[in-house]
Design a protein around this nucleic acid. Sequence first.
DNA 1: CTTTTATGATAGTAATACTGTCATAAACAA
DNA 2: TTGTTTATGACAGTATTACTATCATAAAAG
Lengths: 229, 229
Amino acid sequence: MEIRFDLCASLSLRDPQETELGRKIIENSIVLIDSIGFESFTFKKLAVQIGSTEKSIYRYFENKHFLLLFLTSWYWEWVKYLIEINIKNIESAPRKLKIAIQNLVTATAENPGNKYINENLLHRLVVQEGGKAYHIYGVDDENKAGMFLSYKKLVKLVADIILEIDPKFKYSLSLSSNLFEMANNQIFFAEHLPKLSSVASGKKMNTNLIDMLWYFSAKILNQDLSVSK
Amino acid sequence: MEIRFDLCASLSLRDPQETELGRKIIENSIVLIDSIGFESFTFKKLAVQIGSTEKSIYRYFENKHFLLLFLTSWYWEWVKYLIEINIKNIESAPRKLKIAIQNLVTATAENPGNKYINENLLHRLVVQEGGKAYHIYGVDDENKAGMFLSYKKLVKLVADIILEIDPKFKYSLSLSSNLFEMANNQIFFAEHLPKLSSVASGKKMNTNLIDMLWYFSAKILNQDLSVSK
DNA sequence: CTTTTATGATAGTAATACTGTCATAAACAA
DNA sequence: TTGTTTATGACAGTATTACTATCATAAAAG
């Protein structure tokens, strides 16, 4: 089994999912960025790691920013895919929201969906570096070019579940985007700046974070806290 | 009137608030980063703008990362200062929280507190680039060195107000940090990725954002929505 | 069997992110 | 007053980064 997502074409010069070298670039860039950080990451270092050349990587991605955008977009598509398959055939909207929260926090399936993408590592990368994909000077142009569609579709998916729960709720988009942002942020805080978070890192972090996000959402949406047990 | 904050000493090699050149560095770095973005910003460009040299700027800051950290720390101290003077003599804890929200969203005083720091520009800078101050590879070491104390103190201040409202509330730190993160994030989304936010950019953005943050907080804390009118 | 396409090898350039040295002017101390 | 720190500027230099260009070759496609 090999999951492929159709990401915005302008993210890459050539689709890296289609070639051996392309997949090597994806696989190893995740490992390398995770291990040395996005700022120290260069195409030169990646080229050395995969036994290729800088130039060959530049044939796939204009620069490292677009590579990061590709990786985060792939991640959001993956989370959307997980949520969609897991809420299938579920009737209750609050239940769907709880499932969405579970999936956006853990972002892992029982069976990995892909041979060359380590979803756990990618999740950690998005927690650490994800915001840099859009906190950039050219955000408006890139948005016009459709480069943030994956994230927008995902936020819309959850916002629609929220509207199913309460069609009159005024803040569905903000609550939805905040769930994604807050989930990643609180994981980052728990692991690096624990004074900024009420959830502690460790074995029970994900469970506690899911409980908290559900608590916040249920309160805001006037839902019974136990409804989705 | 000239506000000075005692920021963590290791943020800078020399306190820029004390010298003419130092204040020029602060003043112009805010303008320059805001206009070209943090990635394109270099000490060379800043040196040219202020008629100094790269080397002289390096005598104040190790590199541009620490300059950004200095600016964001100054900003968080400034917001903390605003909140503190505005909740003085207020009895009602929910009222205090509402005032805190108003201040963290607008982050401006009637009278600017400083001649060489443009607080409005700095606010915009923190919205755009603030997260990059701690989403870095060396976050743990810098945290040990006390470099995020300003933000942690601010989050604690608001978390304590939350505990005043409900001493049994389990998520005071996360609710507090999320208020700060969400405020900046939703401003960024409203202005650049409007599909991700329920608040629209424009004249009423701040008011709507304050209402939303208060709505979320009040719901989560079981407070009357109108209590702090 | 030819032609396209992808990659690798190699080279080169401007800018970035620094570090080092020295001269000088201003501030401060004896 | 003189002597001495201290801050800045002027200038030089280096390794790395972020690219772009050219050419040879091997594999895939027609």
